[in-house]
Write a protein that binds this DNA or RNA. Structure first.
Lengths: 230, 230
DNA sequence: ACAAAAGTGTTCACACTACACCCATGG
DNA sequence: CCATGGGTGTAGTGTGAACACTTTTGT
């Protein structure tokens, strides 16, 4: 028994496109696929799909991310809606873009074959279908903004992490080298991390201390009127 | 002759909701209306409408803005898409929010009666239908970000403006007083404005010089690796 | 012992903040 | 002549940037 008011208007296909960024070895990569259908069949494309009646936009995005990477509870953020008239040359489609950041290690290579998916270095992006290049540009800008104004980067590391790797991730996101001492000074003066006794001995002989993000400290930090910035 | 691929998926109503901010007398206001239909009939609501087959998202937003304020070529920005399952209690609707900033002086009061529209002070916002309060919060955050990192505020003044009024607009947007000398120093050191000979004699006896934003200076500014910040 | 990555302080330049008085004009 | 808003400079403080050496340990 829906109000009649709604029934006079057009309805649209809504796609969700996911900008899945992967990090490994100091490098950022983007997960791309070959578009499986016409038009533009076999051209490079983001991971996408159509929204379903029974799911919210966020749920649709999580569904797609999980389908391709088998990762859940990943930090994702909406980039925006793309609604130009002829952006999809196949039919009128409004697309909502999301981005997420995952560990490339956990990307199953058997999935890669199934979906014809490939990690492409963020500096060597090819031409993609429709307005997908614009979406990626918008997503990177948003990621840089978010990461430098909110402590969202710690969501990437499920728990503990080392400062050298944290710095490498920042450097990959901003595509610029950072000074080690300045980087660490900022973090220590904000005082949001807990230093663990354990060390990561895999990437160096000496070993780097593990840290964890402390949400309680962050709550206090905010209550004191301070604002995260990196 | 559309590809069959598209035909298997659900289609949705897409609404566009406009956060129309108005500035006058050092105060920011939001244009609100009484929702004309069930459900939630007569509750406070943003200016909204459904997207049409023949228009892009941006065009739909401009259409709504123009309909209510008779102003065109206004700086507008997309806030984002809102797609929770039951956000609109009448039917499944995905809504895309936009905001724009206009001069309240140019809002025709006859339109106000026709649409039951009212300017409400930004500090005294009522409860609105659905997720409209969230949209407004998101829009204000975005406005503050945009205005402090890009020279978009000059779009508000169609041409010339005085520094006192510019400062008042900033203060209204950020809801905080700014130091007059520091504010002007920042502007003069960036060197993006041209000082005109004419003065605005309406708001004071002495009169304030008019300025204009100079896009060429801004292009140079960017080429020198500088970044706008206020 | 040496290679390879982890960790640690200080200085300098610049940007941001706070702050008070004179100016021009209309009434 | 006075009330009202417009316009101007400086000193102090804090933040961001540049920079090099020692430590640890596995091989």
């Amino acid at each position: 028994m829906l109000p009649a008011y709604y029934s006079n208007y057009s309805r649209f296909l809504i796609a969700v496109d996911c900008i899945i960024l992967g990090f490994r070895n100091k490098e950022l990569h983007l997960l791309l696929t070959r578009r499986p259908v016409e038009p533009m069949k076999n051209e490079w494309s983001l991971m996408g799909g159509f929204m379903d009646e029974q799911e919210s936009l966020n749920e649709a995005a999580e569904k797609i991310l999980f389908g391709f990477t088998r990762q859940k509870n990943i930090y994702m953020e909406q980039v925006g809606a793309y609604g130009d008239l002829h952006r999809d040359t196949g039919d009128r489609v409004v697309s909502v873009a999301f981005f997420g950041l995952v560990k490339m290690e956990q990307f199953d290579t058997s999935l890669a074959k199934e979906y014809d998916a490939t990690w492409v270095n963020i500096n060597e992006l090819p031409h993609m279908v429709f307005d997908h290049n614009k979406m990626v540009g918008d997503a990177l800008r948003l990621l840089r903004y978010k990461v430098s104004t909110e402590p969202v980067i710690f969501n990437f590391f499920r728990e503990k992490f080392t400062l050298p790797v944290l710095q490498e991730l920042y450097e990959a996101i901003f595509q610029m080298p950072l000074d080690k001492r300045n980087f660490r000074k900022k973090l220590t003066t904000m005082d949001l991390l807990d230093k663990l006794e354990a060390k990561d001995k895999e990437s160096s002989k000496r070993g780097a201390y593990y840290y964890t993000f402390n949400p309680d400290k962050y709550a206090l930090f905010l209550k004191n009127g301070k604002r995260f910035s990196l």
